[in-house]
Design a protein around this nucleic acid. Structure first.
Lengths: 272, 272
DNA sequence: ATTTACGATTCACTCGTTGAAACGTTCCGC
DNA sequence: GCGGAACGTTTCAACGAGTGAATCGTAAAT
């Protein structure tokens, strides 16, 4: 499809975001030349962009080495972004309730740029536990959270969210697109996604999508823990509880909606 | 002085950061037209900027109303920015130690764009306590943290960090530039800044700067609480402990340095 | 001491951002 | 229910602005 091509794209702006994204991934401060090389531009362009970002506090230049890091202003903006996610506020009590009932780690995540972004969580008190962090990222295809949202996305968008090739996080990760799509069919039928050591060996996770008022998956909640504690005996109860919880959340953020398993999410524009 | 004028300024980029800064301040989602009006540009420019930011997840467009909020990607970048502040890691034990000893709220902050940015804190366990949040902002002129850093900044930069007019947070806030400079002279002489209800009535706070290897104030730590508990009796002990703690931190981040009260920070380039 | 590589700076070119104007839609008041 | 206002969206020609190749000075590497 696409009348597109280059939309409303602004070159400088995209390069700027490339710089920020690169600095976000980077483990260590980066120099202008290296940044230019990695994002495929010239030194001078990057240099000027960095000068602008620095002046505004969005990046920080190490005085000694002239290398750059993410700036303090991004902490301010990021915290503000986090607090303004009202989804997070509404989900809190639901997460806490699930945590109280099962004693395992409970997560809230959204889909962003083809990755799962953790927005909130309540960690298990067990010493052996799964743990994520706010703002942390995980692949869509190897997590219950990702698969839960993916499954209920219109087919076109679904593919757009996949980063090919599907990297194997563990030997169990589904790396074949076809296999993943079949898995997503199962998820859609069951209303719940499952991850058995596909993202991290020994960890099991159940994820359920939360929908907005248009019936589009806007987030997902999950419960995760070591396989040893999440045996099939407990699984059934947990799954039911998750589906109920997600339904309640959907009902709340969507206004008034069928809270149960949404069965009818058809491909593309289901306006019937 | 300035050969400047417009430096390496990039128009689109500055406008983009204006948009982000505006969305950061905003309490509610904003439309393109309103943003344009507030930052003084045309609708179409803002619209295109927003389209670009949206595509990258830096802002989020409410599907229903076409109004914009800070995006999830900023949560990711912001959390990363926070974690990459190694100052924060190093300061943690110092903050915890001060908190353990006095049982009051202890803060770590840096100067950014003329405001105090809280980077980390350990909150008092008392029910009546001062409380800030990571990423929160406060004025430089009304806080002990701000005054502590301001006092040791070269005169030129000091003025650059002041947002005039100095707004009165309380009746006690110093709003006269001259009075503030006199206060900063006292802070410089004492090596510690004090805030007696200047930022919030009933709250008292002591702040000490932390220096980098060039002797420039890079951060400040503070201890704050209700005036009722921070009486002059305890103040002396607290002040000494703060100065010692900040000295230790300075020594650590600056490499090896005179950890005690830095007395000789002269105006401009003190390379003697 | 020599070399290399980096950050910083310059400048003419031209490509891409600009802003005014117009379109379609939604929302409000009458 | 109807007019109007205000919004988000789209278009387009013009010129201002960002580009990148080349250069300088400096700091690290051999």
């Amino acid at each position: 499809m696409a009348t597109n091509g280059a939309d409303y794209s602004i070159a400088v702006l995209n390069r700027t975001l490339d710089v920020l994204d690169l600095l976000t991934e980077a483990e260590t401060p980066l120099g202008a030349t290296e940044i230019a090389r990695r994002i495929g531009t010239t030194k001078s362009a990057v240099f000027r962009i960095l000068a602008n970002l620095d002046r505004r506090g969005y990046v920080s230049k190490e005085a000694a080495t002239s290398r750059y890091t993410l700036g303090v202003r991004l902490v301010v903006v990021g915290q503000r972004a986090l607090r303004s996610l009202d989804l997070r506020h509404r989900a809190r009590p639901v997460l806490e309730e699930l945590h109280a009932r099962f004693g395992e780690t409970v997560n809230l995540a959204v889909l962003n740029q083809g990755t799962v972004v953790y927005i909130d969580m309540v960690e298990s008190a067990h010493s052996l536990r799964t743990a994520a962090a706010v703002g942390a990222l995980d692949p869509v295809h190897s997590t219950a959270l990702g698969k839960a949202m993916l499954a209920f996305l219109p087919a076109a968008e679904r593919n757009a969210q996949l980063t090919l090739p599907l990297v194997a996080r563990t030997p169990r990760t589904l790396t074949a697109v076809l296999a993943l799509h079949q898995e997503l069919d199962r998820v859609r039928a069951a209303g719940i996604a499952e991850d058995n050591g596909e993202n991290e060996l020994g960890a099991r996770c159940f994820g359920v999508p939360v929908f907005d008022h248009l019936g589009r998956p806007r987030a997902a909640i999950s419960l995760s823990g070591p396989e040893s504690r999440l045996d099939d005996g407990r699984a059934a109860e947990i799954k039911t509880a998750l589906i109920t919880a997600a339904g309640r959340l959907t009902a709340e953020i969507a206004g008034a909606r069928p809270p149960a398993v949404p069965t009818g999410v058809k491909e593309e524009a289901a306006c019937g």
